[in-house]
Structures are given as C-alpha cells and as structure tokens.
Amino acid sequence: MSKLRKVIKLYCQGQSKLQISATTSISRNTVKKYIRVFSGLKTTWEQINQLPDKELDELFCKEPEAIVDDRLLPLHDFLKQQEKRLRQRGVTLLRLWNEYHAQYPEGFSRTSFYHQYNLWKKRVHPSMHMAHKPGDKMFVDYTGEKLQVVDADSGEVKTMEVFVAILGASQLTYVEAVESQRVEDFIGCCENAVRYFGGAPNAIVPDNLKSAVIRSNRYEPKLNENFEAFADYYGMAVLPARAYKPKDKALVEGAVKITYIRIFASLPEKLSTSLEELNARIRALLEVHNRTAFKGRSYSRQEQFDEMERAALQPYQKNVLNVGPHQ
C-alpha cells in the first residue's frame, strides 16, 4: 500500500494527523495536504482505494492551476514603483494601499492588497524578511576567508583579515582588508566605514566579535570598553546580534557572500605588495559593486543610498579618534 493510501485509510479510521505522520513517516504538512484534498473530493476511502496509483497521484499531487487576475500586473507595477517608500519613516502599508485604491478603485481590497504585497515581497526579495529604516543600523563582520599580501623585498606572505560593513536600508557596503581582528583594528575599520558612508547610523550590529562583545548575554551583553566608547562618540547604540537568531545577521552574511564573488574572485592573481595596495584594489571593485544595479531592479545600492539613506545618517565627527589604522 502506498503511503498516500495509508494516510487516507488511517484518517478514515479516526487517527489524528500527528499519529498518521508518526506511523507513515510523512511530514505533518504533507499529511494535512492529503487530508485537505480528500475532504474536498467528498468521496469515501473505498472509492479512493479503487483508483490505480497513477490516477491517485495525479488527483492528490497535481499542481493547482494558476489563476490569472487582470489586477495583478497593475498592482505589481505599482509596488515596484513604491517599494522604496516603505522604508521611509512614517510610510505604512495602509498609506500605500490608500494611494493604490485612489489610483485603482476597482483593484484589490485592503486585505487582498496586503496578501498580494506579501506574496510579491517574498518573490522579489526571497532572503530579505526584515524591513530596515534609513539611517537605523550598520551591520559589521569579518569574512571567513582571508586575503594575502607579499612583501616586495623579503617575499614573505602575510595573511590579512577582511572587514565588511553594510547599511540596513540601502545595503551600501564597505569592505577593507586589515592586519587583525584586534580591537584597535576593528574600531579603525568601523570608523573608516562611517567615514565612507559619510555619517553614522543610529546603531551598529556586530556579530558577537571578541573585539566588540566580551561576554554575550541576551539582555545585558558586556561590551569592550573601547568599542563602547567609540560607538558613544559617534552617537551609535551597540546591538550585538543574538545567538541562534540568524535573521539578526542575515544581511551582513549576505554581504560577505557577495564580497567573495565580486571582490575576492575579481582581485588580480598577482598578490599586492602592501596592505595599502590591496585596499586600493578592493576599493575599486567595491565602487563597481555599489554602483551595479540590484538583480531585477533598475537602481543600485549607491543610488538607493543617495536617495533615501544619506540624509538619515548622523553627521560624523570631523576630528578622528586614534583607535586604529586609517587608510
């Protein structure tokens, strides 16, 4: 007996979905799907059992026919034009629906608009589940892989860490090679990122790096005093990413992956002869990355930053802290 038949038979015998799932080793969601289809057929177990396996599979496993709705194309065009506005302060989905309804009075109702928006967002931004407000957060981390420089005189090859920072709303990215993850190098990189962005966000989110967080705690993490002083100096709160909460650091992890593709893989095979030369090469590739249009979009990170996030940042202090290397 196929597992599908067994699910229907056990259901007709009065067993619960949980019991059926355990007995057949089929996930509860699949069990629920089979039972939902069976209930909708308004038939009996005896009639179902008479069908050959092929017909049974077609009946229970076929994909639902796509429903074509003439209102979808105008809605998607509207959302594509307005998506960046939702990241601006004070702009809500209700306000967006009011504008949509005024423009398309025969369009979707408010509830359907919300539902279609969520479907559209998942399709367009499948990995972005968090909405970030302009000027709100800067996420920072180091790449797992490292880069190398070779001393022109001695031929000694040195390994360099690679720091990555990304702004939440615009996704403008900063990348820098540095000698270590020591606190002075880490703070220096964070400050260089602030200077590159031209301003400081409201908060900085490190991934529990030892240079930033001495002891991780869900409610009161103990921060490195020098790093905390640096953040205070620029008016930034420190919000360490929570352990076992992948969404807290998804954005910077995505930036690290893109760094591998667009910077690491694009560097010349010949090693740089100094850290300064390596960072000059990185900066050139970084500019290309930030000015390349998002996939499926007509605008880039730089354009999005200029339009919606630059003005939301806090002006950074002109006097420079002597906490680390500055390129």
Rank of each mutant, 00 (worst) to 15 (best):
P315Q: 12
A193N: 00
P126Q: 07
K3V: 06
S127W: 10
P246T: 02
K318M: 09
G254F: 06
I282C: 02
H76M: 04
S16K: 03
S21F: 01
S272H: 09
Q327Y: 15
Q103I: 05
T292S: 14
K62H: 14
P268I: 15
K318P: 00
V194I: 15
T143G: 09
R281S: 08
F264S: 07
Q304R: 15
R85P: 09
I48T: 10
R218F: 13
S216P: 00
R301E: 05
M236E: 05
T43W: 01
S21L: 03
R5W: 04
R301G: 03
D70T: 13
P52T: 05
S170L: 07
Y104A: 07
T44G: 08
H326F: 10
L285M: 12
C189K: 00
I35M: 08
G254R: 15
R89M: 09
G107P: 05
K54W: 03
S25Q: 15
Y142F: 15
L209A: 13
C12H: 01
V162L: 14
S39C: 15
Y114S: 11
T44W: 03
S112M: 14
A177C: 08
K270I: 13
K33V: 04
S109Q: 11
A193E: 03
R310I: 08
K137T: 11
K84S: 14
G135P: 01
F139D: 07
Q15G: 00
A312L: 04
R218Q: 11
E220T: 12
S2A: 02
F60R: 07
Q88S: 11
R95W: 12
N217C: 09
I204E: 06
P206S: 07
N29K: 14
A165I: 08
P246C: 05
S2L: 01
H289F: 14
P134F: 09
T24F: 05
A311T: 13
S300N: 07
M236H: 05
W97V: 01
T43G: 01
L285I: 12
Y174A: 06
S272A: 15
S21A: 07
N226Q: 12
I282L: 06
A193P: 00
F38Y: 13
A169C: 13
L56T: 03
P315G: 09
K137H: 09
Q181P: 01
D185K: 00
Q148N: 14
W97T: 02
L4E: 04
Q81M: 13
